Simulated scan of single mutants.
Amino acid sequence: MKKLQFNQTTLHVVKGDITRCEVDAVVNAANESLLGGGGVDGAIHRAAGPELLAACRTLDGCRTGDAKLTPGFRLKAAHVIHTVGPVWRGGMHGEADLLASCYQKSLELAEAHGIRTLAFPAISTGIYGYPLEQATAIAVGTVLKYLENQPESDITEITFVCFDDATVYAYEQAFEEFERGTD
């Protein structure tokens, strides 16, 4: 397990199942309806139970790049932060800014609700087709920029939960890139 310390926050990369994470909040790579789907979204909805769908119905969806909060219901996590990543359309349609916004808005929402530990999936890298290396660089870069701009952040732990070895490797490379830049 690769880890990186930044101010008071520890960042981890792990291979595993985000629905089993023992954190204050898991981040859901949702679609705009927030009513469940495939991949991480479907897994979180199945694990959280039908109460999550009922709670999501009251939120009136979510725009790409934004984030909304619900309870975690049957998850080990007390909360779910739902964020909608961009569909990859070649990189010339604001995808990078929208993806960065997913991480930024999720962190802001966590901070506003006293969430100290959270787990992120690799947003937009599944069916939405975002190139893995670019997506992980944006994820790590956005999180570190947020922590740099919020030195008094109460967030103590951020875990990037990866579905497979290729994603673990991409996050580890992004961590190493940051470490090289700080030497």
Rank of each mutant, 00 (worst) to 15 (best):
M1I: 06
K2F: 06
Q8L: 10
I18Y: 00
T19C: 08
V23R: 13
A25E: 11
A25D: 13
V26P: 01
A29I: 06
A29G: 09
N31D: 12
E32Y: 12
L35H: 00
G36M: 04
G36L: 11
G37N: 13
G38R: 12
D41A: 09
G42D: 14
H45R: 03
A47S: 10
G49I: 06
P50M: 01
A55I: 05
D60W: 12
A78P: 02
A78L: 12
V87W: 01
G91N: 08
D97P: 03
S101N: 10
S101Y: 05
E111Q: 14
E111K: 07
E111H: 07
H113I: 04
R116W: 10
A119V: 04
P121T: 03
P121L: 08
S124N: 10
S124W: 11
T125W: 12
I127M: 12
Y128C: 12
G129H: 14
G129N: 15
E133Y: 09
A139L: 06
V140W: 15
V140I: 15
V140F: 06
G141I: 10
T142N: 11
T142E: 02
E148A: 15
Q150D: 07
P151A: 15
P151V: 15
E152N: 15
I155G: 01
I158V: 12
T159V: 02
F163A: 00
A166D: 00
Q173H: 01
A174Q: 10
E177T: 15
F178A: 05
E179T: 04
G181D: 12
G181Y: 13
G181I: 14
T182V: 13
